[in-house]
Design a protein around this nucleic acid. Sequence first.
DNA 1: CTGTCAT
DNA 2: ATGACAGTCCGGTCC
DNA 3: GGACCG
Length: 296
Amino acid sequence: MSTIRINNFKVELSNLDKVLWPKQGYTKGDLINYYIDIYPLIQDFLAQRPLSLKSYPDGINGKSFFQKNAPDYAPHWLSTYGIYSRHRKEAINWITVNKLADLVWVANRASIELHSWFSTINKPDEPSFAVFDLDPGDRSRFKDVIDIALVIKKIIDEMKLIAFLKTSGKSGLHIYIPIKTGYKFTASKIFLKSIAEMVIRVKPGLATIEWRKKKRDGKVYIDYRQNGRGKTLPVPYSIRPTANATISTPLNWDELNPKLSPEKFTLANIANRLKKKGDLWSDILQIKQSLPSYLL
DNA sequence: CTGTCAT
DNA sequence: ATGACAGTCCGGTCC
DNA sequence: GGACCG
Ligand SMILES: [Mn+2]
Ligand SMILES: [Mn+2]
């Protein structure tokens, strides 16, 4: 056990040498260092947004669990926010990351994945973006996901909206359309569903919005249902529990060519990529777009 | 933070 | 008595 | 209540 001081908050670090990614030999210490380094880039996707962390105390091949509620033994300075849960019939004390010490405490729990709300605690029903989560079914290839993403991009372009792209870190893609506050999740969901239906009209053999897995036929699931209070996706630059420690990596749209493979974006090369390309998502939360009223 | 184990 | 080390643990929505 | 999502 070692104690470090971050802006006067004492954070206890444990098991820093425990290997979490056996193939690469990356340890919990490496995980914590990565999140410290990347904090400036993910800050705005964490601050004031309730967090679901996914923890892998025994590494990526061991048991994992989601955690939302701050445990009693968390340090008093940890940022939390109580929101009444209908499910639990009492408030959940949501963990949030509002400062670096919060993030380091979170990372020390072997929290490989960081998932945050699309909305903030002040306006929990008003998302900052409308999000497509493209999930390939078992009969889809990554090039099908790319195909669908490009159709979505074309529609979004013609609506004169700006959309941001990232890998999920596994086998899918995420498309974020930043919007001005004031729209409820119900509105963004209708907007996204309308576009998804247009895409399916263009690519009926490739994409689906069926909720029942059995009915999806192995196609690419255009998941717009993730747009809701309390629902999450991994934040950009979240590391993932894959053999090579892939990272949910922001991409330029012109990188979507058939040769692209998402498993190439990893902890080993993220620093180099950032040096070359910069942070492609740095502006996203400054962009406040209106949704086309004719779709709502 | 709390509990256990080794010194 | 002191310190190293380990444990860590789901809710919301759609149908 | 169960499926499905992260
Ligand atoms: Mn996905
Ligand atoms: Mn999904």
